[in-house]
Structure formats: C-alpha cells, structure tokens
C-alpha cells in the first residue's frame, strides 16, 4: 500500500455544522440540536480517512453533509476546488458522479424490484446515455467482475443474493461512474465476520486500481486501524482527535479516544482477560472537552480543554 502521493487535498471540509431546530409545541423554535458542530478535515487523493465515534456522535451526519445528501447548515465542503454548497442544482448533478456513497444495509439500499444488472446500469444511463447498448452491457459485466460477482447473475434480484454479494452490487454501482471519492457509512457492519474481510479487501483493491479516496465511517475500531491512513474521532458532534492511524492507536491523547480504544475487545484470551480486569464499571465520560483542535505533533490534532 502506497502512501498518498499528493499533499493537496481532494476534499476539504471546513467548519461544517449541521443543526436541527427543535420546535416547541406551539411551533416556534425552542432550541437547536447541534448534531455536528464546527468539523474540519481534509481527505487527500488516494487516501482513506476513518471517522469513528459512538452512536449519536454525528458520524453519519458528517457523511451525508459532505455528499450534500443532507446539506450542512453552515461551513464549506470544497471538492476539487469547488464549494459544493454554492453549486447550482445543475452543477451539483455533474459533480455527483465523482462523489458516491455506500451504506450499511445493502438490502434496503437496493430496489427489490430491480435486477442487480439494472441497478448497476442506472447511473451509466443517466451520465453516459450516448453509448450503445452493447457497450453499456459490457461495461456492467466488467463492473460485476471487478467487484467479484459473476456477470451471469446480472439478471437476478436482490433477494437472490447473500448479504456480502448485495454489498458488492452496491459497490459496483458506486464505482460505475469512476468516482474520485466514496463515503462508506458502516459498509461492513451488517456482514458476517468472514464476509467483512472479503469486502474490506475489495475496497482496498479498488482504491489501488482506481485511485479512490474514502471517508470510512465505522464503529469497528479494529477494521478502521487496518483500513485507514488517518483517523478522526468524533464525540458529541465534534472532532476530538485526528492523526495518522498508527499514531492515534499507539499514542491517543484525548481522554475520549483513550476510553474508546481501551474498550475494544482483543481476540486473544490472555490479553483480553487482562484488559477487562482493568476496566472500571460505569467510568464517567470525559467532561467539558472543547472542540478546538491543537496540533500536538506534526499531523496529530487534539481538542484541548479550556483549562489545557
């Protein structure tokens, strides 16, 4: 695996916030729920950035905001020099082919009445309608092979595939338009352990071959360390730590990151028994951490408390 070559980012997220107004019963805005607040990060070409955090931390909200599926309340999402929030609908449609998403549950992402082949073909029809039917058919067959599916299965429907195969179909559709960037939101969480490794290897191969960048959203801290070049830790809607993954896992600085990493079970009985015997019950969550990031070492950013 090569390190990202280009130092300039493919995607720059700056001060991204997503707030939801909470209405009171007579209709006025009672208060604002800050799902994500003031999040900034870059993703470089050919890089995988991991976004980890627990349920409610805002992981998926960030993923949907950077793809404009659910645009941010404020902040900038700059992709290849264009601020996505300022694009017209027409410009955004052109941009969409470069930015794709893969979701947790492939079964609900698929259309039960559409064959796998038609599902993969759909984006090609929208963006490359001038091509002949034979060309398109060949392209779909190539995509099936690329994700490890037999092209003869193109006529089958979602219920005829296993969970891992369905996720491969979703990935085939996501790469159909040769995107530069894919947001993968818990893409392996619904899959069995032995199938997870197949899909992770596929994502890595596609990155090498197509020069993709990923935002890999996951609660699986083991797989994140394996797959991601850099990792951002999200807590209560803000990034509390961001570093290359070796550094983050070896030398976590923020108390929340430490707490999160300490909770990951280790598939080694002696080590795991040692680990859980040191975990306290109902340890309080870290308090009062601000979300202002300070660079404590080159490339290692940590949110500092007001009191340092």
């Amino acid at each position: 695996m090569t390190e990202p070559a280009a130092p300039y980012p493919l995607l720059s997220v700056r001060n991204l916030s997503k707030h939801y107004p909470l209405r009171s019963w007579w209709g006025g805005t009672a208060s604002v729920f800050k799902a994500v607040h003031d999040v900034s990060f870059d993703i470089r070409p050919n890089e995988t950035l991991g976004l980890v955090g627990e349920s409610g931390s805002g992981k998926s909200t960030v993923g949907r905001a950077v793809t404009m599926l659910n645009p941010p309340t404020s902040g900038h999402v700059v992709f290849q020099g264009a601020d996505l929030a300022r694009l017209t609908a027409r410009e955004m449609r052109g941009m969409r082919r470069h930015i794709q998403m893969v979701f947790q549950d492939p079964y609900s992402a698929l259309n039960p009445r559409m064959s796998a082949g038609a599902y993969v073909l759909e984006p090609l029809l929208l963006h490359a309608a001038d091509r002949s039917r034979a060309e398109l058919r060949e392209e779909v067959a190539g995509l099936f092979e690329r994700v490890g599916l037999d092209p003869r299965f193109a006529g089958r429907y979602p219920h005829q595939f296993s969970g891992g195969q369905r996720q491969r179909i979703c990935i085939a559709r996501a790469i159909a338009l040769k995107p530069r960037f894919i947001v993968a939101d818990e893409p392996i969480a619904a899959l069995d352990v032995s199938i997870q490794a197949q899909v992770v290897n596929l994502l890595q191969d596609l990155q090498d071959e197509l020069g993709l960048s990923y935002l890999f959203i996951s609660h699986d801290l083991r797989m994140v360390r394996y797959l991601c070049h850099r990792v951002a830790v999200l807590w209560r809607g803000g990034i509390v730590e961001l570093a290359d993954s070796e550094t983050l896992y070896r030398d976590p600085r923020h108390p929340y990151t430490r707490r999160l990493l300490a909770a990951v079970p280790v598939p080694d009985p002696a080590a795991e028994r040692r680990r859980i015997s040191t975990i306290g019950l109902a340890e309080p969550a870290p308090q009062g951490a601000g979300h202002v990031l300070t660079e404590v070492a080159p490339g290692h950013w940590v949110a500092q408390n007001a009191d340092g």
């Binding site: 695996m1 891992g164 290897n201 083991r222 394996y226």
Partner: peptide, 22 residues
Amino acid sequence: RSLPDLGVRDVRRLRLQPIEGT
C-alpha cells in the same frame, strides 16, 4: 485469520485473509 492482526506494526501492509465463498 480474517481479523486484522493489530499486534504488528504497519498493519495495512498485510492483506486480510477472508474465508472465500458463502
């Protein structure tokens, strides 16, 4: 074997060994 071995440094160099098939 299908789990990433986090005991090694630079775990990304090793390829996961999935169980093929279903």
